[in-house]
Amino acid sequence: MPVYLIADVTVTDDAWVPDYAAKVHDIAARHGGRYLSRSGNIETIEGAPPGSTLIALIEFPSREAVAAFAADPDYAPFAEGRKAGSISNFHVIDDTDLAGGIPYLPKG
C-alpha cells in the first residue's frame, strides 16, 4: 500500500539546503520514494497559513520504505543539517479514505 511522506519545513538557516536539495531525492529513490512535489509555492485557501518555507510530498511503496529511508546512514548527515537549520514536521499518511465514501480509495 503506498504511503505519503509530508515534510513541512520552515528554514531557519539555509546552509544545509543546497546539498540536501541536490542529494536527498536520490537517497529517497533508493527506498522507492518519488517526489510528487517539493514546493515553496504555498497558498492557503482556508485557515491560518502554515508559515512554512516549503512542503514536500514524497510517495513511498510502504511505511517500511519510509522507515528505511529515515534510518539510512547516507541520509543521517542531511537529516542532522536539516534539523539544525529548520523547524521540520514530517508526517506519513496512507492512501485510505477514513469515511469510506470515495470508491477508488480503500476504506481507512
Rank of each mutant, 00 (worst) to 15 (best):
I93E: 05
I45A: 11
P49I: 04
V3H: 04
A29D: 02
R82I: 05
P77H: 07
S52H: 09
A21M: 13
P77L: 09
L5S: 11
P61A: 05
A7L: 00
G40R: 13
S37I: 12
D19V: 01
T12N: 05
P61R: 04
G85V: 00
A76L: 11
T53M: 04
D14F: 00
A48N: 11
V66T: 05
T10C: 02
A71E: 11
I58V: 15
N41H: 15
G108F: 07
A65Q: 07
I102G: 02
S88K: 00
I87P: 00
D72H: 06
P2D: 05
G81T: 00
T96L: 10
V9H: 04
P106I: 03
E46Y: 11
M1D: 11
L54W: 13
G32W: 12
S62C: 05
F69R: 03
G51Q: 04
D95S: 15
R30K: 15
I45M: 08
H91T: 00
F60Y: 01
E43T: 15
A29S: 06
R34L: 12
Y104V: 12
T96A: 14
G40H: 11
P50W: 01
D13E: 03
R82M: 13
N41S: 14
D74M: 10
G51K: 06
N41L: 12
Y4V: 02
A71N: 15
S37F: 09
I58L: 14
S88H: 03
G47W: 13
G108P: 07
D74Q: 15
D8W: 00
T12H: 07
S88I: 04
D26M: 13
W16V: 09
P73E: 13
A79G: 08
G101Y: 10
A65W: 00
G51T: 03
E64Q: 12
E59K: 10
Y35W: 06
D72T: 07
T44H: 07
A84T: 08
D97V: 01
I42E: 02
E46K: 09
G101Q: 14
A68W: 07
D95I: 10
Y104D: 14
Y75R: 02
E46M: 10
S86V: 03
D74G: 06
G101R: 11
H91N: 13
A21K: 08
D14T: 03
T53V: 11
P106L: 08
S39I: 12
G108N: 09
K107T: 14
I102T: 14
S37N: 09
D94I: 02
A76D: 14
A48K: 12
W16K: 04
D14G: 09
L36Y: 02
G32F: 13
N89R: 15
A29W: 07
G33E: 04
A28P: 05
F90M: 13
A99F: 08
D19C: 02
A7Q: 03
S62A: 03
E43I: 14
K107Q: 14
A68G: 02
I102A: 12
R34Y: 09
A56Y: 04
I6D: 02
V24F: 08
V9G: 07
I93N: 04
H25K: 12
V3T: 08
I27A: 06
A76Y: 06
D74F: 05
V11M: 01
A56T: 06
K23P: 02
G108M: 09
S39P: 00
S88T: 15
G85Y: 06
I27D: 04
H91G: 01
A56Q: 06
